[in-house]
């Protein structure tokens, strides 16, 4: 057995898993506060990565500036998307809203490949590509940065929802919109804000992945990977999203290990997350961290 490969894959699993976790968290954020299942989550990564790429390559901005402009752009984009496209859909049947987000997903994919082309475009080198060796494992600096950024985002989310005024307002809105309104919270603002945060943070993940793998429409597959992550976690739990992301990330890599060592089927890692999803939902229908109502005794 190839222990070194296993270790390497586990490390990859954790790194990719935290990224899944971040995107799943964003997905859950929208679902929780606006009850919309956003099938265009993956496109947020894609748009963010392309915008950042364009700013760096076409406009020659320095990395940090381009990065910040991308975040600001995605925040505004999230608000705009909610106000223009999703707000008129409030009160419509859930299936219409789902069809709408699927439509958005296809639209943005097409739009972006029309603008930027079909091929993978590499990011300008921001971090050295040479791997560093930590505990005998090779890790790319970009991956380390990705891990740091992901963890920072998670801590930021925790702080935001636990202590900030707007974060509390968003939780209250997720719990009961009428109550939130009775407290003076504008549900419209909360909706727009959750799309904005979700788009912004997802794009961050998109940029990180783009820096390692190059930017192409393949990035939006992360949006699909995020479903098992979010559902395993319970769909309405932010912590669950993170845990689900980690589980899916690690499982994928373990599956790859098993596949490469013994089975040699080729792409076991692509389907394993979905098998696990089914298995977990059979045992825990609410997911690992899903809400069950508080019952007073």
């Amino acid at each position: 057995m190839n222990w070194e490969l296993l270790g390497q894959l586990l490390v990859n699993g954790v790194i990719v898993g935290t990224l899944y976790g971040v995107v799943a968290m964003c997905f859950v954020l929208i679902y929780k506060s606006t009850q919309v299942v956003n099938f265009a989550q993956g496109e947020f990564l894609l748009i963010g990565a392309w915008v950042c790429w364009a700013l760096l390559v076409k406009f020659g901005l320095p990395f940090w500036l381009g990065f910040l402009v991308t975040l600001a752009f995605m925040f505004a984009f999230g608000v705009l998307l909610q106000v223009v496209v999703l707000r008129p859909m409030i009160g419509e049947p859930i299936i219409s809203v789902i069809m709408l987000t699927i439509g958005l997903s296809i639209f943005f994919q097409a739009l972006l490949s029309w603008i930027f082309g079909e091929f993978v475009k590499p990011f300008p080198e921001v971090f050295s590509v040479d791997s560093v060796t930590i505990l005998g494992l090779n890790v790319q600096p970009a991956y380390i940065m990705s891990l740091v950024i992901s963890l920072a985002i998670m801590v930021g989310f925790f702080w935001f929802f636990k202590y900030s005024r707007m974060g509390l307002a968003m939780r209250a809105t997720a719990f009961d919109q009428q109550v939130a309104q009775s407290l003076g919270i504008s549900v419209k603002h909360v909706f727009a804000l959750s799309w904005a945060i979700s788009a912004m943070v997802s794009s961050l993940a998109g940029v990180v992945i783009g820096m390692v793998n190059g930017v192409s429409s393949a990035l939006s597959f992360y949006g699909i990977k995020v479903f098992p992550a979010a559902i395993v976690g319970g769909l309405d739990s932010i912590v669950g999203g993170i845990a689900g992301g980690l589980i899916i990330g690690i499982l994928e890599n373990v599956a790859q290990f098993v596949d490469s060592q013994w089975l040699e089927w080729g792409n076991l890692y692509e389907i394993v997350p979905f098998y696990v999803l089914v298995a977990i939902l059979m045992i825990k229908p609410y997911g690992l961290f899903g809400t069950r109502d508080i019952e007073r005794v």
Binding site: L168, A169, R171, A172, D176, V179, L183
Partner: peptide, 19 residues
């Protein structure tokens, strides 16, 4: 009553002061 059940008492009170 309609308090936010999955928040603590203090968080509920802070919500009251949202404005």
């Amino acid at each position: 009553r309609r308090i936010v059940e999955d928040m603590t008492v203090v968080e509920n009170l802070r919500l009251g002061a949202f404005t």
